[in-house]
Design a protein around this nucleic acid. Structure first.
Length: 575
RNA sequence: CGGGACGUGGCUCAGUCUGGUAGAGCACAGCGUUCGGGACGCUGGGGUCGGAGGUUCGAAUCCUCUCGUCCCGACCA
């Protein structure tokens, strides 16, 4: 492709709307342009990289025995009502009515549609297993789209769905997909980690997220430095502490005035105690009913864990007004004693004795509070966020809490959808069984952003070779010089003949501009034809990543570059 | 949905407090000089100051409403 004919509007200055590197660089390098909040147009370069990732995904999915299809984006409400998600899925589901007043929605995901398709067309265990996928634009009306391609409302996703005859067979499929995903991300040049995850709104019972480690990631994950344990915050287990010694005997309850001291910091400083001697009482609404969640002062409640422990559908932190209504005072001096609502406690709280809590009276706290004697606990379990101070739940090794970008998510769905939609087959006994399902997503467009977050410098993007929009950028450094132009034209043709994806910068621009643009758009291999080298019968090569330069003889340069690319491609996969 | 910020040529922004008839740099077009890390000179085109209403002799500037964008908190690929 000749640069002079390409729509590639690079920007010298950073648009004010972009905050993080990938968003800034995607705009500056002319990959994307925003149409409206969370909705982007892909320009030629952006599309090329998108297509490269898609191609890798296709190859690996096909290799794993999955089949590609394409499902509708517009979906009827009836199907969603059948699965129960028309009510459950929030305002993120973009709903509308058509001219016949039929309720419809834009597909944010396709469990209903695929299950419907399979129930209509697959009836026997002999047709299983079945693994189907599509690469398609999804729409989710996100509350807050942000960071460019990182969290758009419209985005490109690969979603796959598997149908098996048994739990055991579904497990095999799940593991195969897990391996496939690792291979896909490695081939994209992404350094990625599979972490255990909660199943969220998709439902089901087992799941892994694939996280690209990056400081700008939206999620915090928990990884062990000693073993391969990794989980997201919603899932990272904080097991009950081993009781090494008997609890100290309960002391006499004391009331202490703590005027104006509300936060854990204020109260512990005022009382001269440490946060692990205090218990925080957090009021949540579980399916609309108040519940008091107890965690140690130095811990934070993890709402999803609370939700799961309660067996609730929805859990949210109560507003200050709600707290006033159900407790009779604002947060700041809350405590478990005398509350009428159920009290649930974290493991660590159960291990405490003679704790400090609020007295449910403004400006008053209680000392020597003891579970059992002073208040009942309805439910105890793992309620809190893991911290770097916790040991690994598997090997007791040291944990780290890096940030990550979720690029893939796989779920074992079980039979929740097939039962809701009555999608069944006859097994080898002639018995009707629901399909055992799995579902597998990859944020294809998000992968572009993730790759840039992980691979850039002050000058621009540094694309991993397998997903770079072009493999080579050929710069003619002096378009007006007939000799240089002829040499560059010839080399361009030679490269094209060998199928090397080359962007030929034939613009009548000064060399500085071409260097800057080449760095910005991040093409791995830069080949320069200029007066300085042409006199020696050479072209100059510069590697975008390392910055290393080398000279190649003009004669045979195309072959040498082809060989170089083969070598680089072979080494590009992240281990 | 709550909290904060912003909206002025394609981009980055000044001008708004203290009303007086719209600016700069970059980009774009032309000419000339330049030509291996975002050159320089001259000339030129381009703006409903997000929109509507109001106050005023006069509004980018003050008031009201509205739309949009971005950032921080509850969702997810």
């Amino acid at each position: 492709m000749r640069y002079s004919q390409l729509l590639l509007p690079t920007l010298k200055e950073t648009p004010a709307e972009a905050e993080i590197a990938s968003h800034q660089l995607l705009l500056r390098a002319g990959f994307i342009r925003k149409l409206t909040a969370g909705v982007y147009a892909y320009l030629p370069l952006g599309l090329r990289t998108l297509r490269k990732i898609e191609a890798i995904v296709r190859q690996e999915m096909n290799r794993a025995g999955a089949q590609e299809l394409l499902l509708p984006m517009v979906q009827p409400a009836d199907l969603w009502k059948e699965s129960g998600r028309w009510e459950k899925y929030g305002p993120e589901l973009l709903r509308f009515v058509d001219r016949h007043q039929r309720e419809s929605c834009l597909g944010p995901t396709h469990e209903e549609v695929i299950t419907d398709l399979v129930r209509m067309n697959v009836h026997s265990y002999k047709d299983l297993p079945l693994n189907l996928y599509q690469i398609q634009t999804k729409f989710r009306d996100e509350i807050r789209p942000r960071f460019g391609l990182m969290r758009g409302r419209e985005f490109v996703m690969k979603d796959g769905y598997s149908f098996d005859a048994s739990e055991a067979a579904a497990g095999v499929t799940y593991n195969k997909m897990k391996e496939t995903y690792s291979r896909i991300f490695a081939r994209c040049g992404l350094s990625c980690r599979a972490v255990e995850a909660d199943t969220g709104t998709i439902g089901g019972n087992f799941s892994h997220e694939f996280m690209v480690l990056a400081a700008t990631g939206e999620d915090t994950i928990v990884v062990c430095t000693a073993c391969d344990y990794a989980a997201n915050m919603e899932k990272a287990a904080c097991p009950a502490p081993a009781l090494t010694a008997a609890k100290p005997a309960p002391l006499e309850l004391e009331r202490i005035a703590t005027p104006g001291k509300k936060t854990v910091d204020e109260v512990t400083t005022f009382l001269g105690i440490t946060p692990d001697q205090l218990v925080k009482t957090m009021i949540y609404l579980a399916d609309g009913k108040p519940v008091a969640a107890l965690v140690r002062g130095d811990h934070e409640v993890q709402p999803v864990k609370l939700k799961n422990l309660m067996g609730a559908v929805d859990v949210e932190l109560a507003s200050e007004d709600t707290v006033r209504k159900v407790c009779g005072l604002a947060p700041g001096s809350l405590g478990p004693m005398g509350l009428t609502m159920p009290v649930v406690a974290d493991h660590q709280v159960m291990a405490m004795a003679n704790m400090v809590t609020g007295a449910n009276q403004d400006g008053v706290h209680l000392k020597n509070v003891n579970q059992g004697r002073d208040f009942p606990v309805a439910l105890a379990g793992d309620l809190r966020m893991a911290t770097a101070a916790d040991p690994c739940p598997h090997c007791h090794g040291r944990l780290e809490l890096p940030r990550g970008i979720e690029v893939g998510h796989i779920f074992k769905l079980g039979t929740s959808y097939s039962e809701a939609l009555q999608a069944t087959f006859l097994d080898d006994q002639g018995k009707r069984q629901p399909f055992v399902m799995g579902c597998y997503g990859i944020g294809v467009s998000r992968c572009i952003a993730a790759a840039i977050e992980q691979n850039h410098d002050d000058n621009g993007i540094i694309f991993p070779l397998p997903i770079a929009p072009f493999q080579v950028i050929l710069l003619s450094l002096s378009v007006k010089d007939a000799e240089v132009t002829k040499a560059a034209d010839t080399l361009y043709e030679e490269l094209m003949k060998r199928g090397i994806e080359t962007l030929y910068d034939d613009r009548n621009e000064r060399p500085g501009i071409k260097f800057k643009d080449a760095d910005l758009i991040g093409i791995p291999l830069r080949v320069m034809v200029g007066k300085r080298f042409i006199e020696a019968g050479e072209v100059e090569i510069k590697h975008r990543g390392s910055g290393a330069t080398e000279a190649l003889p003009m004669a045979g340069a195309a072959d040498a570059l082809a060989a170089m690319l083969d070598r680089l491609m072979a080494g590009a996969t992240k281990g």
